[in-house]
Structures are given as structure tokens and as C-alpha cells.
Design a protein around this nucleic acid. Structure first.
Length: 409
DNA sequence: TCTGGGGTCCTAGGACCC
DNA sequence: TCTGGGGTCCTAGGACCC
């Protein structure tokens, strides 16, 4: 099993596109660091950091806004190259993938030889540094590639798995983030070896049953996962950071309209409709609340989704009146099912011949027709041709569309 | 002067049903 | 009148990943 991971991907691409950045501390992003080159990391700059903080740490940091379409193109090019060696490629994100090369030995050599070939070809043909981990299982291969970074190759032989894992920090285990790391440190567990020796009931008490069991199995290296293919998404969402703003009617209308439009058009493109709609509102200080509702009639219509999202947001705000400003709004659609206009119309008019329900059905049919016209125009002339044009939204559109599209898996 | 955008999975508690 | 156990669905929150 191989895990291949492009190093500091966005930043490496920028250094490739603009050679004057090569060897220099480089960060991609505008208000926040989306990716930092290894030169920048040596100053303590890391992804997720506010830009002002990054500049504080590294005065001569070069900040670039990002070439998001190039990331997609080059990421695809690299993954295409992987499939020269095996059809069993599981892409996890734009810049990393698992490769099952168990059956490729006859043609291309041992896993270690294939890993070396991948690194050489990605460097020569694409121009990017690639780290690769080689091991018996997915989890171990992933840990190995993290250890290999930057621009390295780490092979874990089956007989030295325990030894390899033993001294590593628990944060390298997949699923152990900052909070879990802190919780484990509190009971004296810092390394994977210590985690493996911890009694099951301790982990269960700290993290609950499922996660406790998973941690134990990863630490003791029982990892049955195979390389699979992509599953269909189980939710579709969109969010917009707003800085600090008072939640006026105008702000809610424009932002939720824009977000609902993004979500609903993606639902329609995927031929899905959502039974559950969730809205998230974040306040200064990062505290966030969510409100959700599950519908009898699945929704994929922009205006209907906008109305539902607005109601949910108003509920959340009404229940948090002490908060005077919001910093983020998000709309998410889940419990996805096949869309059915017939079902929707049928449920809208059970028996009433001329009452409210019948007119609700008419409204729905009109909205359905409107959405499909909008989708058709956009398919022909592009997203900005009609509808909620991002540029008219001062706050929601601070992020380029291309970045949003890149983040959609 | 408190950090982007897009996701997954887990847990707890309540409602409801048998 | 109060009691038991189990299952499903839903809401809200949180941790984590790229």
C-alpha cells in the first residue's frame, strides 16, 4: 500500500508558476493562510492562521492570492500519472491518494520501487515535490508519508511496524486532533506506543465507545480498510465568512440567498433533493449554533431552500439575542434522496381544490421551472450569467468562486 | 483585532412506537 | 396506576480531516 501526498501543495504550485518564489517563504491566501511553503513554516506560519499573524512571524513573507484552477489541473495530472501503475487509486483530496500496488509487481517492481518512480516522475514531469509512505496498511502508509515529508520516502517493513509506530506522537494517528491530543496528554499518553498500551476502558471513558475502539485499533495497528472508490456525498453545503456584521434583514437575504443558490444548484446538478436543511450561525469568539429541520417533501428549489434557511437563521438569532454580530453563515443540505416534482406537488395539494395548498403547488411548479431555466442558461453562459451574481455580494463573495469549486470534493 | 470553505462521523437526549 | 426494554428518527453540538 502506498500513500502519496504532494508537499505544501498550493504553495508548491505557486513556486512552480513564479520561480521568483522558489526557496522563499510563501503563503497562499488573502485574509487567512490557506497553505504555507516549508520556508514559511520554519517561521511558524501555518495553514488557518490569520494573515496579519503570519506577517508578524515572517516579515518578508510573500503572500499570493492563489491560482485555484491550476491546483485542480496539476492535482489531476499527478493522479493520472498514478494510474499508470495501478487502477486501484483512491483519491482522498486534491493532493493525496492511496495506491494499492499489490498486483503491479510483475510490471513495475516492488512497492518501494514504484514509490521511488512516482516521486521521480512527478518531480520531472509536473515539477512538484511528492512524499510517499509505503506500508502494509492504509493507516500505516499514511503515517509513513507524514513522517517522510517534506519530499521524502519512508518504507515500513512488516516486521518493524511496532518499532516504527512506538515512538511517534499520537497526533500522527488519523483522527487524533488537537483536542484529543490534549485529553490524552492529561492522562500521560503522548506516543503511539503509550496509546497502544492504554487500557480500553480509559480510552472509552475519554472519547466514547466508537472513537475509543478506533484509536486502540489504529495504535495496535489492526487496520482492515481497503482502497475503495469514491462514495457519493451525503451532504452538500456552502458557507460564507462575513467578518463582523450586524445580522440585518439585508445581510440575511443576500447571504442566505447566495448560499442557498449554490447549494440548490449543486443538488440539482447531482440529481438530489434534501430532506434535511441545516443552518449554522457563528458569532464573534467562534461560538456557533446550528438549527436544522427535516422535511416531508425533499427540497432542491433555490427559492424554497432560501426561505427555509432564512427561517432557521431567524430562529437561531432569536434564541441568541445577546449576540449583536455574526461572523459566518452556512447552509447545508443532507439526507439526500432522489428528487420528485410529482411527490412535491402531490403533497402540496392533498384535497383542497382552490385553497392555499393548491396555490402552493402552483408556486412550486413555477419555481421548479425557473430553476431549470436558470440552470440551462448557466450551463451555456456560465454561473455569473444569471441569478445571484457573486460580485454584487460584498461580503459573501470575498472568496473566489474557483476556490469554492476546488473545495467541492 | 479571533481563522477559509467543503466535508465526515460520533454522541446525547428527546419523541414516539411496540 | 405505574412499570420495563428496545428500536427508530430527529436535533444540536463537537471533533476531525483536507
Amino acid at each position: 500500500m502506498l500513500h502519496a501526498d504532494l508537499d505544501a501543495f498550493y504553495a508548491s504550485v505557486e513556486q512552480l508558476l513564479d520561480p521568483s518564489l522558489k526557496g522563499r517563504p510563501t503563503a497562499v491566501g488573502t485574509g487567512v493562510v490557506l497553505a504555507a511553503s516549508y520556508e514559511a513554516r520554519s517561521f511558524g506560519v501555518s495553514a488557518g492562521m490569520p494573515a496579519w499573524r503570519a506577517r508578524q512571524l515572517c516579515g518578508h513573507l510573500r503572500f499570493v492570492p492563489g491560482h485555484f484552477r491550476e491546483y485542480q489541473r496539476l492535482g489531476d495530472q499527478v493522479v493520472d500519472l498514478f494510474s499508470d501503475y495501478t487502477p486501484l487509486v483512491e483519491r482522498i483530496s486534491i493532493d493525496e491518494a492511496f495506491l494499492d500496488v499489490a498486483g503491479a509487481g510483475r510490471l513495475f517492481g516492488s512497492p518501494t520501487e514504484i514509490a521511488a518512480a512516482l516521486r521521480r516522475r512527478v518531480r520531472e514531469e509536473v515539477g512538484l515535490p511528492l512524499s510517499v509512505g509505503v506500508a502494509r496498511t492504509k493507516h500505516l502508509a499514511k503515517v509513513a508519508s507524514q513522517v517522510a515529508k517534506p519530499d521524502g520516502l519512508v518504507v515500513v517493513a512488516p516486521e518493524s511496524e511496532r518499532e516504527f509506530l512506538h515512538g511517534l506522537p499520537v497526533s500522527l494517528v488519523w483522527g487524533i486532533g488537537p483536542k484529543s491530543q490534549a485529553n490524552l496528554a492529561r492522562v500521560g499518553i503522548k506516543t503511539v506506543g503509550e496509546l497502544a498500551e492504554a487500557p480500553g476502558n480509559v480510552l472509552e471513558r475519554l472519547f466514547g465507545r466508537a472513537i475509543g475502539e478506533k484509536m486502540a485499533s489504529l495504535a495496535t495497528n489492526i487496520d482492515p480498510r481497503q482502497v475503495g472508490h469514491q462514495r457519493a456525498a451525503s451532504s452538500i453545503g456552502a458557507q460564507a465568512a462575513l467578518g463582523r456584521q450586524r445580522p440585518t434583514g439585508d445581510l440575511l437575504r443576500s447571504t442566505l440567498g447566495y448560499l442557498a443558490d449554490r447549494v440548490a444548484s449543486r443538488l440539482r446538478a447531482a440529481e438530489r433533493a434534501a430532506r434535511t436543511v441545516t443552518v449554522r450561525v457563528r458569532f464573534p469568539g467562534m461560538r456557533a449554533v446550528t438549527r436544522s429541520t427535516t422535511l416531508a417533501v425533499p427540497v432542491d428549489t433555490t427559492l424554497t431552500l432560501t426561505e427555509i434557511a432564512t427561517e432557521l437563521a431567524c430562529t437561531a438569532l432569536a434564541q441568541n439575542r445577546s449576540e449583536k454580530e455574526v461572523t459566518l453563515l452556512a447552509v447545508s443540505a443532507s439526507r439526500l434522496v432522489a428528487p420528485s416534482l410529482q411527490l412535491a406537488l402531490g403533497l402540496c395539494r392533498p384535497s383542497a381544490p382552490a385553497g392555499r395548498d393548491a396555490s402552493a403547488g402552483t408556486v412550486l411548479a413555477a419555481r421548479w421551472a425557473l430553476d431549470h431555466s436558470v440552470d440551462a442558461v448557466r450551463a451555456k453562459f456560465g454561473r455569473g450569467a444569471v441569478g445571484y451574481a457573486a460580485p454584487t455580494l460584498s461580503s459573501a463573495a470575498r472568496v473566489p468562486e474557483a476556490f469554492r469549486e476546488l473545495a467541492e470534493h
